[in-house]
Design a binder for these strands. Structure first.
Lengths: 205, 205, 205, 205
DNA sequence: AATGAATGAGACTTCATTCAT
DNA sequence: TATGAATGAAGTCTCATTCAT
């Protein structure tokens, strides 16, 4: 799907506002005002508020697909794992708005959950993780029997927890700006997750 | 604060509906109808819809306070850790409705985040975790230098991830009923988290 | 169904405006303004604009049921026929507004046509006419083989034609006021219809 | 007035939609879509939605003018009357769409009623009827004192009644298709009206 | 203490029309 | 001549809240 420049602006504004105030908490008027367009234009361009959310999701969903080419890299599987975690967090962090929306609205049953592209995204990412695990088991580096679902939930859940408790954690971690917070996630949090997953995969009980 | 029987019924209904449809997605009329009370009664009892959410939170918040008495148990620190994880997930799972609300609405900046009781809850739980970590380090069982914030984020984030992707994961895990899903979380998920945290705390890089 | 005084006022105003400007041509705002009530009150009382039309119809429909007691009168069947025509036109004329609406909106397929009470009304009236015809045939006064549907269509169609061309016919008939027009219909038009139907029923080809 | 091919297509589509859903119930977008033209083109070609209705009326009005040449036929006046009724119903039936519109929208005061061509049409038709009546009286076949207005109202009203209660009458008369219904009107209904008017004009009270 | 009635504000959406090209 | 883009106005309806009782 192709979006005009105005449409893109609307999408970006909507993304920000949905992330800040939720879908129901954001009015079409708010979006129109912030995007400096006519109220009617949102419906003119997207048909309805619901379809705007759909389009926003479609527009952003590609970003969250894990890059499966890392599987082909001729580097130790441990490094592939590290790379995967790092990229995933980095991508999510770079468009945290849509992820925030996704996390919030996915819970409210009626909406995105039903979306096929959402399911496909999830399945794709689980497959990538699954392949890495298999590669590690084959190389004798990982214990077998680990569930990619649990790995993914740990990685993504921990990240989301940081997103959703931003203001509390910011003060708790003495991080003053959003940039610092962002850097924290891309460094400290990434390392934590890399260590956590690695420990889990190699730990002997 | 003391709530009358009618007030409690309203709170319980509100909890369910907020969890299902979000705060904005639930109207005062919906609550009144489901609780079989007059629409005006919600405002009469709670002042406003916002204050109803506050009261609901206050009413439930105690549940989510980690039990600090486990620190006094004369059992190996490893078992204390296991117990903490197990109880925490169990409590959250037993009142997932409020937790769902909390997770969703906490993200929407204007609301609960500001609440002092929310901050206090978080701080309390971090302190309990911190104490356990210290105990483990003192006993020579845990590596030092672990941040309770990261531990907590991992535990709670992973759990929340299971909450928010319920329908997708249910089908992915071949769990047909909510009871099965609930059992999965209280068994498999708990074990996963226990292992994960333990691995992390003892792993040598 | 019971209507409060305010509801009745709204119904009356709606009746007038629907008759004047059609259903689509009348806005809820118009009704609210003319009835001097809040715009929200229309929905508060009736649920929706569509349901308002339903209720209006239900409220008025009784008026248009032909009085079947005339069948019991011990007078010549010819007089029963005259009486039927006279009463029918008189009743229709006394609440022409709703009849206007009915005629107009019945044509627009989606609406009232489907309503059961509309069908029942029609069937009832056809039955009364049918009974009168039978009585006349039995008495040897009417030819047999007349279809009540055609009789009814003639009577009602002619009346409606006068309703729908009011302003043209008013000037054509040199009637200056609506009262004069109304009187014309209750006298001249009634006589015309009585004669027409009588002629039709007794005429030998 | 001359209409281009595109304009004609628009007119035809508009005619159909107005007849189906009423003037207010039909949007310019609907027309444009069905006619496969740009939305702006309706205004470009016709100036406004209202003027489109005017033009549609002007375009169709000729059809409803009674053919006055029948007055010159050297056949019994009774046959002239029969012919007039037959042709009138046939013409109306052949373009019932516009007639439907006319009947509906003529009632809504603001519009077509004001149109001069509408008045002229009515006057023309009344004159034709009047001439036939006179011819019959002169020939000693009709009673004098009959008002052409009442004759016309009876004929047109009865026909319109069949138009506006199509779906009810279709089921009542066991006619399954629109074609059957159409045939019914051009045969049974025509005969009914011919008999009715003839009876009325010759009946002795 | 409790509630039915009422309402102002604002939600989303559709409309006929205009404008720049 | 023709049209895609854009928009102000208005539509219906729902909302949380208040008020009189």
């Amino acid at each position: 799907m192709e979006f005009s420049e105005k449409q893109l602006e609307i999408l970006h504004v909507a993304e920000k506002l949905f992330a800040t105030s939720g879908f129901d908490g954001t009015s079409v008027r708010d979006i129109a005002h912030e995007a400096q367009v006519n109220v009617a234009m949102i419906n003119y361009y997207f048909g309805s508020k619901d379809k705007l959310l759909d389009d926003l999701f479609t527009y952003r969903v590609e970003k969250f697909k894990m890059d499966e080419s890392i599987l082909q890299l001729t580097i130790p599987v441990m490094d592939i794992l590290d790379e995967m975690v790092k990229s995933y967090i980095k991508y999510m962090n770079s468009s945290l708005a849509i992820y925030h929306i996704l996390a919030i609205e996915a819970g409210v049953k009626k909406r995105l959950m039903l979306s096929d592209s959402y399911k496909n995204l999830k399945k794709h990412n689980l497959n990538v993780i699954s392949s890495i695990l298999q590669k590690g088991v084959d190389a004798g580096e990982f214990r077998s029997g680990n569930d990619p679902i649990l790995i993914h939930a740990t990685m993504m859940g921990t990240f989301m927890n940081f997103q959703m408790n931003r203001s509390f954690l910011k003060s708790e971690l003495n991080l003053t700006t959003d940039e610092e917070y962002s850097q924290y996630m891309e460094s400290t949090l990434v390392i934590h997750l890399q260590r956590t997953i690695k420990a889990l995969l190699t730990y002997e009980y």
